[in-house]
Design a protein around this nucleic acid. Sequence first.
DNA 1: CCCAATTTGTTCGTATGTATC
DNA 2: AGATACATACGAACAAATTGG
Lengths: 256, 256
Amino acid sequence: MPPVTTRSEPRQSRPQRVAEAIKQWVMDEGWQPGQRLPSESELIARFGMAKGTIREAIRILEAQGLVASRTGPGGGVFVHRVSEARAIALLGNYFYFADLSLDDIYQLRSLLEPELAAGLAGRLSEAQLARLEAAIAASAPPAVDPDDEAARHAASLAFHAELAAMAGNPLLGFVIRFLAEMLGEVTVARGLHSATDPALWERGLACQTELVAALRAGDAERARAVLREHMATAHRMMRDREARPARRFLRDRVRG
Amino acid sequence: MPPVTTRSEPRQSRPQRVAEAIKQWVMDEGWQPGQRLPSESELIARFGMAKGTIREAIRILEAQGLVASRTGPGGGVFVHRVSEARAIALLGNYFYFADLSLDDIYQLRSLLEPELAAGLAGRLSEAQLARLEAAIAASAPPAVDPDDEAARHAASLAFHAELAAMAGNPLLGFVIRFLAEMLGEVTVARGLHSATDPALWERGLACQTELVAALRAGDAERARAVLREHMATAHRMMRDREARPARRFLRDRVRG
DNA sequence: CCCAATTTGTTCGTATGTATC
DNA sequence: AGATACATACGAACAAATTGG
């Protein structure tokens, strides 16, 4: 080790640096999803490092959802567009440590969803409206056993996911779906899906039905108002049980 | 379609499965940040796999920000709380491919920030208010060269980051800081920080100053109204230039 | 159906770097 | 300074998956 030659932080491991370099490379060249990166052996030659080092770098990129690899001829490492499911899972990791409350989640939902609905009023096709109605039907009574209860809760969240998917704003849609996912984790992780007040549940369903009507009619103001009330209802339904969500990582359902 | 032999999807690579198993393990045991995972050699023994495989698994967890490793005696792999900077970078990867517009970003900011400000009115200490005022001062005129311009824009975003950090709601705070980060990327990636209308900039500063006054006075309504106008001003300042943000990955400034 | 080529996936042995005592 | 304990990196070999002949 020579004297103090202004070492510029070689503190990152080699795989991390290689991963960063490849990422920058992809960005500079403007490579698109589906395009193939150089093969392992080419990367070994290019970076002058051992196979294991290069492989670890690729794993880092893979964990971020930025590349995917396949074996065999025609295989290799490919640029991959980060899937929403993976982005949600990665972000969920962050909030695993954050100690969120139901109030935190519902505050955001109450801010965003009414606005989303207002923006969609009069802009949905019949097919889209039908999908929303199907989600409502799937979450409708009668309730039978606890499993059925859970399924209907999931369907109710699906309604909001559908709505979010129709958002013109990808950011808004993502945040709403993420919140719904977090909420779903909370409800299944604890027994919050059971013992719901039937009257409140009915009320929620009525809100959703009226919302679809307002969307079809193109009445933005009414859509906003209805969803605002729906959020309040749902929040009330959850409140005064556990105040803290269970600490869990979100499952990453993604293969790519 | 081959016969249905209920293959249990061994399609994931071993490192991925090991990483998933360790993650689950950490969760089940409720391990906290700072606690040490078993050493490499112990993991090798426990999973019955080679060193390289285990190392790749650890890299996967490291890339997600869930663990960090140190060399030397007393070193090892440690549970790590995902840092906000890393979460922002990972989420930024997702939106790299999403083709966001400035309007998308500002729509969300306009929805969230006024509400945040309203919630903070009357609840900030003098020290916190002073930090906000410092950020305003740093972004104030006079403008000299382009570099100075960029620095003042950064300070302006810092004002919003400070505000978000004071939010009682971690979710709200995160989203706002993420949006500010994305906006910062956009403004530096293209020339949007230069050629700003001085009158509009002045107007933005006046809004921020008035906001701090409202916060100090505990006037939630005024805070909301002021920030709403500030958002509109900022949006106007950006609009009618490039409609699409540059496609860039967010830099991950994090070491841990 | 098998065989061969190609590319990632996995293993093992060894050596090096780094931080603590 | 030296010993120790740990991650880090290298290299060569072998295994598995996929494609095409």
